[in-house]
Nucleic acid binder design. Structure first.
Length: 296
DNA sequence: TTGTGTTTTACGACCTCC
DNA sequence: GGAGGTCGTAAAACACAA
């Protein structure tokens, strides 16, 4: 008795008269899955698709134990076509396909199982790529916002210092600076001009940070401001804009946070774009239609 | 030719649904 | 409980570089 296959597949070319074992045996022996006569073999032998192939392989089979055979290209083509229309296999369709392709129904079922597994693996890879691209894009946007934030903070600090300097020396200069004179001349957002409080330098990432500390605001708002109304309003608008920006300029991040709060519906909210894109991409023709795919 | 990595076929174990 | 699903894995078949 010749035995082959690590998964308990065995073949007995000599036993039981004209009967042979064909199939697999469980680790705990419960008998072969099928007994086939020689005649049955020519009709039902699993790994051959056509009678011609069976004859062609006869000598080979006499010499070697049961071998795993690949399906022919035509068989695979037909199976792929069937899989495209419906990736699940009803019993009727399985029987019909098996008959049509000269395979055992079990082979057709196994082929569909493996095909679904392959498709799932590929789909996971695609989803990963899409999510990664989306993440990279968001990261880039976030970096831009952070840079813009730092630039605006440095502007505020610069203007505040100028205001304080003017308050200390009200006699300097006859007229107050115009708007364009208040604008900072600092092209490097990372460099904060003038003397800046330590906490101002350190507080670059929190909404409640002391961009303009209360002392500074009180100074500006003392009623003794050097600046005429328009300039004062300008400064306050600027400060307000900065604060509003810090509070409101992260819509995408807020949305992601909300999705994190509710992970049950992966396809809703922000990620819906990703999956819609994935579906569109697939429908656009990389050969894998998603028409029947049910996200779970 | 041979060693090695990948793909394909097939199975057992386990899970879910009817 | 049976049918059919997924998951993990074994092993044959295949591809390809050295």
């Amino acid at each position: 008795m010749a035995t082959t296959g690590g998964s308990n597949m065995f073949f007995d070319a000599s036993c039981n008269g004209n009967m042979i074992f064909l199939g697999h045996r469980d680790p705990v022996f419960r008998g072969p899955r099928s007994f086939l006569s020689i005649d049955d073999m020519s009709r039902k032998r699993p790994f051959f698709s056509t009678h011609e192939e069976l004859i062609e392989e006869e000598f080979y089979d006499e010499q070697l134990p049961e071998k795993k055979r690949r399906l022919t290209t035509e068989q695979v083509h037909q199976l792929e076509k069937s899989f495209e229309t419906e990736n699940k296999l009803e019993p009727d369709r399985k029987t019909e396909l098996a008959k049509k392709l000269g395979l055992q129904p079990r082979q057709v079922a196994v082929w569909f199982q493996n095909r679904r597994a392959r498709w799932k693996t590929k789909q996971l890879e695609r989803d990963y790529d899409l999510l990664k691209a989306s993440y990279d894009s968001l990261l880039s946007d976030y970096d831009d916002v952070v840079k813009e934030n730092m630039k605006l903070k440095s502007e505020v600090v610069s203007l505040t210092e100028k205001l304080q300097a003017k308050e200390m020396n009200p006699k300097e200069g006859v007229a107050g600076p115009r708007h364009d004179q208040l604008l900072p001349h600092n092209d490097n957002p990372d460099v904060i001009e003038g003397p800046v409080k330590a906490e101002d330098r350190l507080s670059s990432d929190s909404i409640g940070s002391a961009i303009v500390d209360e002392e500074g605001l009180q100074l500006v708002d003392s009623g003794n401001s050097y600046f005429p109304g328009n300039d004062y309003s300008y400064c306050m608008d600027l400060i307000g804009n900065v604060q509003a920006k810090e509070k409101n300029d992260y819509p995408k991040m807020d949305l992601i946070q909300s999705e994190e709060d509710d992970c049950n519906d992966v396809k809703s909210g922000y990620f819906s774009n990703v999956f819609e894109a994935a579906e569109n991409q697939n429908q656009d023709g990389d050969g894998e239609s998603l028409g029947w795919w049910v996200w779970s």
